[in-house]
């Protein structure tokens, strides 16, 4: 009877010897409290978004409205330019992602598979840009944008978002992955006499496709979450991405928190979904830079 699988209980026994019950209870309590604190803001956002406008002021501080009104979302959609803001967010985030990938894939390839001059220096410079604050960069980037007449246009925002938020870690993630592709594969193609341009698009890009997809999702999230650039450059409402659009209503004399929270949830859900999709791969890009 060689090869009989060990019974499961044995593993449990071994683990229970390693971890005392007190340790496990402490873990449950800690995780439970943190998850409660985590869910509280989302819960408040949902409950406030359901308060009917007529009773907003008296019921705002209650934790759940007496008469929740789901139709608030329809009213909000009609009364505030939410759809327009959402469209802006999509255009800017998708535009930045496309630009960053189009520029970043060749750059990542060059920095990992070719003997480009100053390879380490370029990689360091890309990384170093990630350490700076967008709200400080924008002080002088605004000057650049006004010289180029890009202050109130999608192009200006896509340009800055892709260059500052997306490109550096797209390059790092792709370079890091392409470096691990075995040399033999490249040599096999060399015999066929492929140019490096063909190698990049026919061999390396398809192999790296899953990693490129992850980098693209990161880029999308980073651009969607931008605050400083859009706050400064999108001065007219027609250009504001959703988070900035919501923020712009806060200055109003009486703030319609129920609609603003509804709009906030609309701005959150796409990112929340992407995070859950990425869940197992979230840490893979961390070494290559942060998500702001």
């Amino acid at each position: 009877m060689i090869g009989t699988p060990r019974p499961r209980t044995d593993v449990r026994l071994r683990q229970s010897r390693v971890h005392s019950p007190g340790e496990l209870w402490a873990a449950y309590i800690l995780l439970g409290i943190f998850c409660l604190i985590t869910l509280f803001p989302l819960f408040v956002m949902v409950s406030v978004s359901l308060i009917p406008s007529q009773t907003l002021a008296p019921s705002l501080y209650h934790l759940w409205p007496a008469h929740p009104r789901l139709a608030n979302y329809i009213t909000m959609w009609h009364d505030l330019p939410i759809a327009h803001f959402l469209m802006n967010s999509l255009i800017i985030a998708l535009g930045s992602t496309v630009v960053a990938l189009a520029v970043g894939i060749p750059a990542g390839f060059a920095l990992s598979r070719t003997k480009v001059f100053g390879r380490r220096i370029w990689l360091f410079l890309f990384l170093a840009t990630q350490m700076f604050s967008p709200s400080m960069i924008i002080v002088s980037a605004y000057h650049v944008m006004s010289v180029l007449h890009l202050t109130d246009s999608y192009f200006g925002l896509i340009f800055l978002d892709s260059g500052f938020y997306c490109l550096p870690f797209v390059v790092w993630i792709i370079a890091g992955f392409m470096r691990q592709i075995p040399q033999e594969l490249e040599e096999a193609v060399d015999i066929d006499g492929a140019s490096s341009w063909q190698k990049l698009w026919r061999i390396f890009t398809p192999i790296a496709a899953p990693v490129i997809a992850v980098a693209g999702v990161y880029a999308f999230i980073a651009s969607w979450n931008d605050f400083a650039f859009a706050l400064t450059l999108a001065t007219s409402q027609s250009l504001m991405p959703l988070p900035i659009g919501v923020y712009s209503f806060i200055g109003a004399y009486s703030i319609q928190w129920n609609y603003l929270m509804g709009a906030s949830l609309v701005a959150t859900i796409p990112i929340l979904v992407l995070f859950l999709v990425l869940q197992r791969r979230l840490t893979s890009g961390i070494m290559a830079g942060t998500i702001r």
């Binding site: 806060i250 959150t268 990112i271 929340l272 979230l282 998500i291």
Partner: peptide
């Protein structure tokens, strides 16, 4: 659940906070 705070756009977190 522990990922959730990271997945809410920071601007939205801040707007929630000011309310």
């Amino acid at each position: 659940l522990s990922i959730v705070p990271w997945a809410i756009p920071l601007t939205i977190v801040a707007i929630w906070g000011s309310m």
